[in-house]
Computed example of a mutant assay.
Amino acid sequence: MTNSEFNWGIIAPGRIAHNFAKALTVVPNARLYAVASSNRERAQAFSQTYACNRIYDNYQALIDDPNVDAIYIANPHRFHFEWAMRCLLANKPVLCEKPLTVTAKQTQTLIELAKQQNTFLMEAVWTRFLPAWRQVSTWLSEKRIGELNVLRSSFSFKATRDDNDRLFNKDLAGGALLDVGIYNLTMSQFALQREPETILANGLIGKTGVDERTSVILNYNGISSEFTCGLNCTLENQFILYGDKGSITIPTPFWAATQAILRVDGEPECMIELPFRATGFEYQIEEVMHCIARGELQSNIMPWQDSLNTMKTMDAIRAQIGLDYPFV
């Protein structure tokens, strides 16, 4: 890595990777250097769109490229663990799409490996780094709505029915919880800074064996976080935090928030509007680069313990709703 350029590599240039590549264009000193895909034509098309220097038709070749400073992993959930592990073994810093892994045991393994290899690792929960959510965090720390009592959120949409798509594919760790419910959960943990004490969940398992709707009540020592995630209908998809003095509303889509509304004693007090500079992924990219420049192995905004807590909670939810994956 030079003082002037930070070379990113992308593993798996699918839908979400486009948001990452577009965001790189507004991050100072960052560039898309290499992309790897099992489909060379896809890698070629992606590299042409984003002026990428190198393309590879296998992931390991990208990992072995000495000019790659960090790797963004964007393949289906099932494969996150394997390829994050391979990156860490090669001492390549990792930003891996959520969920970091499929189980808490896998996440713990990656954390221990990152420590052993002295190599940066972060789950790519872009929502935590958005300016609107950073303002929400400030309001909470200032006790603007008093003591938190209830969190309510939803992330549910009517997905196009395709049993081979990763959303419905059990072999790829599909389903609503891991794909979208993780946002409800990780942002609850972001607000409350701890694991829930108790978990109550119910879900609808569809014909392909994945959850097409999951509803959860989490108890954080008297504070309740209630959410529904799903693939079979569209809900309000906002996130509301209720305190004893007021509330904070993050309008739909809360996971891609550009607004937040603070109400005190039932009256609107402040509404902030903070649009993205690009796709919104730029803020987590900058965090990774800053952490690596400072020699840090993890981010204090998206620390390893939070990723582990999220996975432990999702393991418990999956057990309650009868969702298992054959490869773990």
Rank of each mutant, 00 (worst) to 15 (best):
Thr258Met: 10
Glu282Ser: 11
Glu296Trp: 10
Glu197Gly: 10
Leu274Pro: 07
Asn300Leu: 03
Gln298Trp: 06
Asp265Leu: 05
Arg213Leu: 12
Asn221Gly: 12
Arg277Ile: 03
Ile272Trp: 05
Ser225Ile: 06
Asp211Ile: 03
Ser188Lys: 00
Asp244Ile: 02
Phe254Lys: 02
Val264Leu: 01
Ala278Trp: 11
Glu226Gly: 02
Gly206His: 14
Tyr283Ile: 09
Cys291Trp: 05
Arg194Pro: 00
Asp211Thr: 02
Arg263Val: 01
Gly246Asp: 09
Glu236Met: 11
Glu296Lys: 15
Leu235Cys: 02
Cys270Gly: 00
Asp244His: 12
Arg294Ser: 14
Glu273His: 14
Glu273Tyr: 10
Thr198Gly: 01
Gln238Ser: 15
Met289Lys: 10
Gln189Val: 11
Met302Phe: 04
Ile272Arg: 05
Leu200Met: 06
Thr249Asp: 09
Phe190Lys: 05
Ala257Trp: 03
Gln193Leu: 10
Phe227Trp: 13
Pro196Ser: 06
Gly203Arg: 09
Thr214Val: 15
Thr279Asp: 07
Gln298Val: 12
Ala257Gly: 04
Leu192Gln: 07
Thr208Asn: 15
Glu212Ser: 08
Thr258Tyr: 09
Asn219Lys: 05
Cys291Asp: 11
Phe281Gly: 00
Leu241Ile: 15
Gly266Cys: 00
Phe276Met: 13
Gln193Asp: 14
Phe276Gln: 10
Met302Val: 14
Pro196Glu: 03
Lys207Glu: 15
Cys229Thr: 15
Asp244Arg: 06
Lys245Pro: 00
Ile301Tyr: 00
Arg263Tyr: 01
Leu274Gln: 14
Ala191Glu: 07
Asn202Gln: 13
Gly206Phe: 09
Ile292Pro: 02
Phe281Arg: 12
Met302Gly: 01
Leu204Thr: 14
Arg294Ile: 03
Ser225His: 08
Gln298Ile: 08
Lys245Ala: 14
Ser247His: 06
Asn232Glu: 13
Tyr283Asn: 10
Thr214Leu: 01
Cys270Lys: 10
Phe239Cys: 12
Ala201Phe: 08
Glu195Asn: 06
Thr249Cys: 13
Ile272Cys: 05
Gln259His: 15
Ile199Gln: 00
Pro251Gln: 05
Cys229Leu: 09
Ile240Thr: 15
Gln189Phe: 07
Ile285Glu: 03
Thr258Ser: 08
Gly203Val: 07
Arg294Cys: 11
Gln284Leu: 02
Glu269Met: 13
Leu218Glu: 02
Tyr283Glu: 12
Thr279Leu: 04
Thr228Val: 15
Glu282Val: 09
Ser247Leu: 08
Ala260Glu: 01
Glu195Cys: 02
Ile205Pro: 03
Asn202Trp: 12
Tyr220Trp: 03
Thr214Arg: 05
Pro196Trp: 04
Ile261Glu: 14
Arg277Asp: 14
Gly266Trp: 05
Arg263Lys: 13
Arg213Pro: 03
Ile261Thr: 15
